[in-house]
Amino acid sequence: MTTSNTKTDWPSSLNDSELDELDAYLRAHAQEGHLLLDGVHGLLSAIAVGPMRVLPDEWLPEVLHEPFADENEGNRVLALLAKLNDSISAELDVDAYEPILGEVDTEAGPALSAAGWCEGFSRGIDLRAVLWEKRLADDPPLMEMLGPVMALAVDEGILSAEAEFEKLSEDEYDDCLAQLPAVLSAVNHYWFQHPATEAELDALNHESETKNEQPPPPRQRSGHWVH
């Protein structure tokens, strides 16, 4: 497993051993289509910068898929997830956000992968799809802000492009990764400055009453996380 330095001086942030512990639990219980640590971080990141609050009762089913072996294990995993969730908002507040990314083996050696993070981010958007989709359609600057995320998601096959899409070069891929902190900061600020309107919230409420569809499972992933 590969890690970089984490912000252990922050009370709300997980240290390396806690990240390892959560990573190990998720891997031990993962089946095809389940999010690993990078995906969970992407999911919680989308929620953190999104248009409105998403309660744990809504996002936990995207992360946990079976009963805990015992109460102590359950309490520990839930505490780690809560701490991870809190750390994202804390990092965004001081412009110190870092995505947790996967690490995959290539012919040239280990390389960072945004596939898992992007899958999780996409699922986080899906939890408030009505608000996101309407605003993305009506407000081009928001779509532009998310450009690097979308480029990575299309490159990794998480999103499908309407037009033919040329794979990113290694430099372009790395550049998009480097832009993720600034992207999330900008999107977080955007929704703070332009909150959901009453009409958008009414549409969300109507959708939640009449529609209950599950997102399609993503392709299976492997790799290690890096923070």
Rank of each mutant, 00 (worst) to 15 (best):
residue 121 F to K: 03
residue 207 E to W: 15
residue 187 V to Q: 00
residue 53 R to F: 14
residue 54 V to G: 08
residue 8 T to H: 07
residue 105 D to L: 12
residue 210 T to G: 13
residue 85 N to Y: 09
residue 69 A to F: 14
residue 210 T to V: 14
residue 222 S to I: 06
residue 175 D to L: 14
residue 104 V to I: 13
residue 121 F to P: 01
residue 184 L to S: 06
residue 191 W to I: 01
residue 22 L to I: 08
residue 44 L to V: 02
residue 137 A to L: 04
residue 202 D to M: 12
residue 149 V to R: 00
residue 181 P to F: 01
residue 17 S to N: 08
residue 175 D to F: 10
residue 109 G to F: 06
residue 120 G to Y: 05
residue 17 S to I: 07
residue 81 L to G: 06
residue 3 T to M: 11
residue 201 L to R: 15
residue 219 R to T: 09
residue 106 T to R: 07
residue 60 L to D: 09
residue 60 L to M: 12
residue 186 A to M: 02
residue 213 E to R: 13
residue 93 D to L: 12
residue 60 L to T: 12
residue 150 M to S: 04
residue 82 A to F: 11
residue 37 L to A: 05
residue 1 M to A: 14
residue 95 D to G: 09
residue 148 P to A: 02
residue 129 A to E: 12
residue 15 N to W: 01
residue 178 A to P: 08
residue 7 K to W: 11
residue 192 F to I: 15
residue 110 P to M: 03
residue 119 E to C: 08
residue 77 V to P: 04
residue 169 S to E: 08
residue 89 S to G: 07
residue 227 H to M: 12
residue 68 F to Y: 08
residue 141 P to T: 00
residue 88 I to S: 01
residue 195 P to K: 03
residue 53 R to P: 10
residue 76 R to I: 07
residue 60 L to A: 06
residue 156 E to Y: 02
residue 140 P to M: 00
residue 8 T to D: 11
residue 184 L to M: 13
residue 1 M to N: 13
residue 59 W to D: 06
residue 57 D to G: 11
residue 36 L to G: 10
residue 111 A to H: 07
residue 44 L to G: 01
residue 61 P to T: 04
residue 58 E to M: 10
residue 187 V to F: 00
residue 69 A to R: 13
residue 181 P to N: 00
residue 189 H to E: 13
residue 78 L to T: 09
residue 115 A to S: 09
